[in-house]
Amino acid sequence: MNLWVEQGNWDPELFKQHGTKKFYSKGTCLFMEHQAMSDIYLILTGRVRAYLLSPSGEERHLFVLGSNSIIGECNVWSGATYPYCAAASTDIEVIRIPHAPFREIVRGTPGLFERVLQSMSQKQNALLVQTHLMSFSNIGERVMFVLAQLAETYGESLGDGVLIAIPFTHQELSQVVGSSRVSVSNVMLYLQEKGLISKINKQYLIHSINAFKLLTYDKFNSKHD
């Protein structure tokens, strides 16, 4: 799973009559780790980030989800607690679905059970990727890894380069890579000074995606040989 999923594949129409449409402002917490599970959220607009929270209040980012994605489903069959925290990265609109109706919809809709399993598996994979990145990569490598993922998933060809076609802030990127906004800004400035990327309005252009990905993945993978 990419650590940043801007567009999911869940159909809101399946859940509208069983859920409640809600609006939340940026920074609003949807649920906390270990909180008793009550609802699943289908994101209509905006972005939601998932993270772990230490007893001292330190955050460890997991992934970002955008529109037509679900969050909070990981323990829907056990009815236990949420395994992570979730908060609005931007202003968001969601459908909040109680877990019991969600289970009934999944059971009664062909193919939906497999999609839930796929969604949970993707989130587990994101956790493993984050564990590797935080354990074996420095801040520069983590930023380049995420930029390469965004370019691969949301890139548009522009000349010899690839334009990442979704806007994002350094603050959002810093949450994904588990560092400060200042550190991420310094890395982005360094990449621009080296001629690897440039900024066009609110989007970033990677000048040579093949060279960029090779540098990123070679550094990342060499630590696991």
Rank of each mutant, 00 (worst) to 15 (best):
P101C: 03
S78Y: 09
F102V: 09
N75K: 13
P98W: 04
P98L: 05
L62H: 00
T81C: 14
G66M: 07
F102M: 10
A86Q: 05
Y84A: 14
C85Y: 11
H99M: 15
V94W: 03
G72N: 06
E59R: 15
S67V: 08
C85H: 12
A100Y: 11
G79R: 06
G66I: 09
R96Y: 06
A88H: 03
H99Q: 14
W77N: 10
V64M: 11
C85V: 04
G79Y: 01
A100F: 11
V64H: 10
Y84K: 10
H99R: 15
V76W: 02
E73W: 03
A88M: 07
L62I: 14
N75E: 14
G79T: 02
D91W: 04
E93N: 09
S67L: 09
L62Y: 00
G66N: 06
S78N: 13
G79P: 07
I95L: 14
S78C: 10
I92G: 01
A100W: 09
S89W: 08
S78A: 14
F102N: 02
I70C: 12
I92F: 00
S78H: 11
S69W: 01
P101H: 06
I95C: 07
I70S: 07
R96Q: 15
F63Y: 13
I95G: 05
A87S: 13
L65S: 10
T90L: 05
N68C: 11
E93K: 11
P98M: 03
A80D: 12
S78K: 14
S78P: 00
S69G: 09
I95A: 02
E93F: 03
I92K: 00
Y84M: 12
D91R: 07
H61Y: 11
G66S: 02
A80W: 07
T81W: 02
F63I: 14
L62G: 00
F63L: 14
L62M: 08
G79H: 00
F102T: 06
I71Y: 04
E93W: 07
Y84W: 10
S78I: 08
F102Q: 04
P98F: 01
C74M: 15
Y84T: 07
W77C: 06
E59K: 15
T90K: 03
W77I: 11
P101N: 01
H99Y: 15
H61R: 10
D91K: 05
E73C: 09
S69P: 05
H99P: 00
H99F: 15
A88I: 13
G66V: 09
S67M: 12
V76T: 08
R103K: 13
L65I: 12
R103L: 10
P98R: 06
V76F: 02
I70G: 05
I92E: 00
L62F: 00
E73G: 05
C74D: 15
N75D: 10
A86E: 00
I71M: 11
G72F: 06
F102E: 01
V64F: 13
N75L: 10
S89K: 08
R96L: 10
G72Q: 04
L65A: 13
Y82S: 03
E93R: 09
A86S: 08
I71Q: 01
R103W: 03
V94Y: 01
